[in-house]
Amino acid sequence: MYASLEDLIERAGDKELRDIADRDRDGAPDAAVIEAALQDADNLVNTYVGAKYPVPLPSTPPIVRTWATSIARYVLHRNGAPEHVETDYKDAIAALKDVARGVATLPVEDGEAAIAATSGTVMAAHPPQVFTPDRLRGWR
């Protein structure tokens, strides 16, 4: 995973995580809830990053960890996120869109290259033409 429980605690704090991830009300964030939010974040990151890089990324650049943490935190706020959490989420998505479009690049380690761009050639196949001028001769 690109982010961890520790990353969420560092970003949101223990109290916030208990408030948003303690679904069984035992005083501790539920591991399954945290894991699901982190997996959702990974899936979303991979959706955008996969347009330019092979996913999952073999190593996690710090900025990807930040984006994944922001996304997971937003997902955990299922009853409405505070404005600052929503802003972090929107900023992460905007940055991921920039990566997907090739406007931004990830600081990957040596040997982790981006996917080569395609030539832009469009290929199409279609069946032979049915209504040709010869077949329509005599029809008016």
Rank of each mutant, 00 (worst) to 15 (best):
D110K: 15
F131P: 00
Y53D: 03
A41I: 03
L76K: 04
V33W: 01
T66I: 12
A124Y: 10
V122M: 08
E10V: 08
V64Q: 07
A124S: 13
E83P: 00
K90D: 13
P58Q: 12
V130T: 12
Y48F: 15
T60C: 11
T121L: 11
P61H: 06
W67T: 00
A116N: 08
R25D: 12
A41V: 08
R73L: 15
G120W: 08
A21P: 08
I93M: 02
D91C: 07
G50R: 08
R25N: 14
D110W: 10
I71V: 14
I93S: 05
L136S: 09
A100Y: 08
L136Y: 07
M123P: 00
A72W: 03
H77R: 06
M123N: 12
L44F: 02
S4W: 03
T69M: 07
R11C: 09
D91V: 14
S59P: 01
A104R: 15
P56M: 10
P128Y: 02
S119K: 14
L8H: 02
I20H: 03
W67A: 02
V33I: 14
A3R: 09
Y53A: 01
R73E: 12
D110P: 14
L106A: 04
V103Q: 08
I115D: 04
E86P: 00
V49A: 10
D91R: 15
D26L: 02
K15V: 15
N43P: 00
R140Q: 12
P61C: 04
A116F: 04
A117C: 00
A3L: 09
R65E: 13
H126Y: 13
A95N: 12
R23E: 06
T121Y: 13
D88T: 01
K97S: 09
T105P: 00
A37W: 04
D98W: 10
L44W: 06
F131E: 11
D26E: 05
P128D: 02
A104N: 12
N46A: 11
R65T: 15
V64S: 05
Q129P: 01
A124H: 11
L17W: 06
M1C: 06
R101V: 01
A113M: 10
P82T: 04
G138H: 09
